[in-house]
Write a protein that binds this DNA or RNA. Structure first.
Length: 356
DNA sequence: CACCCGTGGCC
DNA sequence: TGGCCAAGGGT
């Protein structure tokens, strides 16, 4: 049986991760804290394990329970999330914590349907929490599982159309016993053996069951629909510095790109050349000096941002933003592209490391 | 279904 | 160097 072979492999080769309960402990009936499972799953959406670890430690230390997170200020949560990307996740995380804390008595729903009704929890995350935290035999399908299952069964249909077919194949494979370990085993297999490039098929516990191995190049699976090309957008960013070295910041709108995050004033980002050499669009008149451009690649476009710098008297700033003292920038809800722009204008402004 | 939504690491 | 990819969800 495929699930048994996979679970035996998992018992020996599972990854130890901060949000996990190890297989021996799980075998004794110990379940992981649903709050930690949920938090890790949301952080891991389209995000690498390595990137998540530090954020997970910070969040769980600062907000040990879902009620703590529900009582936190949204602004503090956004600041803590800064750098992780996909900021709608942070807004939904807060909303979800409030729903669980105040409408479900602080207890996470233990069914897939109940979980999926919460903000920021979709098909994958609902199935994953139900399986891992509540021992439900739900079909967990993420990018790793898609890769494993498409190779195992030589699925020729391309994603995303093939998703229902893949989910059915996973459902058929999911055992009644240890469904949470099975889901995590599939993901570990995809992350460490059945990798996108150069999979270690010689070490795979499912090699005898794999319909692609020996017949075709595993790297060709899963098949995917052709993707669109990324357009280039341009804009300008203005880094104003007052007499004390403070920097002028403002808050972006709540929705859309980088919603609710902090920024330096700037032009819009368009496909035209406008922003490139347009200090006229500055937030207040000053002797703006061009100091180069930064490039930042978002999911669906590439941004080339022209950066300007000027010394601006504190009283001359009449916008809707605020002056943020030097040395306190690290704690702000600044997305990476804004840290890049500020660093382009003032190379020494951040305390440590790369961007945080 | 198609599009929107970040970031960093990898080869 | 740049395209690809990572434990996707919302609209």
């Amino acid at each position: 049986m495929i699930a048994d072979r996979l679970l035996q492999w998992y018992d020996r080769h599972h990854r130890d991760l901060p949000w996990r309960v190890s297989p021996p402990m799980a075998a004794r009936g110990e379940r992981p804290d649903p709050y930690r499972v949920w938090l890790s799953e949301v952080m891991l959406q389209q995000t690498t394990v390595q990137a998540v670890k530090a954020y997970f430690a910070l969040f769980t230390e600062r907000w040990p329970t879902v009620v703590d997170l529900a009582r936190a200020g949204t602004e503090d949560v956004m600041k803590a999330w800064a750098g992780l990307g996909y900021y709608a996740r942070a807004r939904n995380l807060k909303k979800c914590a409030e729903a669980v804390a105040f409408e479900h008595g602080g207890v996470f729903p233990d069914s897939e349907e109940g979980l999926k009704a919460l903000p920021g929890i979709g098909d994958y995350t609902a199935a994953a929490i139900a399986a891992i935290a509540f021992d439900r035999p739900s079909a967990v399908l993420d990018g790793n599982v898609e890769r494993v299952i498409s190779r195992l069964h030589a699925v020729e249909a391309p994603l995303p159309a093939a998703k229902p077919q893949m989910r059915a194949l996973v459902a058929a494979l999911t055992p009644a016993g240890r469904p949470g370990d099975f889901a995590q085993a599939m993901m570990d297999l995809g992350a460490t053996i059945c990798t996108p490039r150069r999979p270690a098929c010689a070490l795979c516990p499912l090699r005898d069951d794999c319909r692609v191995l020996g017949r075709d190049d595993p790297e060709l699976y899963p098949r995917k629909a052709a993707k669109k090309e990324k357009p280039v957008r341009r804009g300008a960013a203005f880094v104003a510095e007052d007499e004390t070295g403070a920097i002028y910041l403002r808050k972006r709108g709540e929705s859309g790109l980088l919603g609710g995050m902090t920024e330096v004033p700037g032009t819009g980002w368009t496909a035209r050349m406008d922003g490139e050499t347009d200090p006229v669009a500055a937030p207040f008149p000053a002797d703006w000096a061009a100091c180069g451009t930064v490039t930042h690649v978002f999911t669906h476009f590439e941004l080339r941002l022209s950066v300007y710098r000027a010394a601006v008297p504190r009283a001359a700033a009449n916008g809707d933003g605020w002056w943020q003292a030097r040395g306190t920038l690290d704690g702000e809800a600044l997305p990476t592209v804004m840290k890049k722009a500020i660093r382009q204008a003032l190379p020494d402004v951040f305390q440590k490391g790369k961007f945080s």
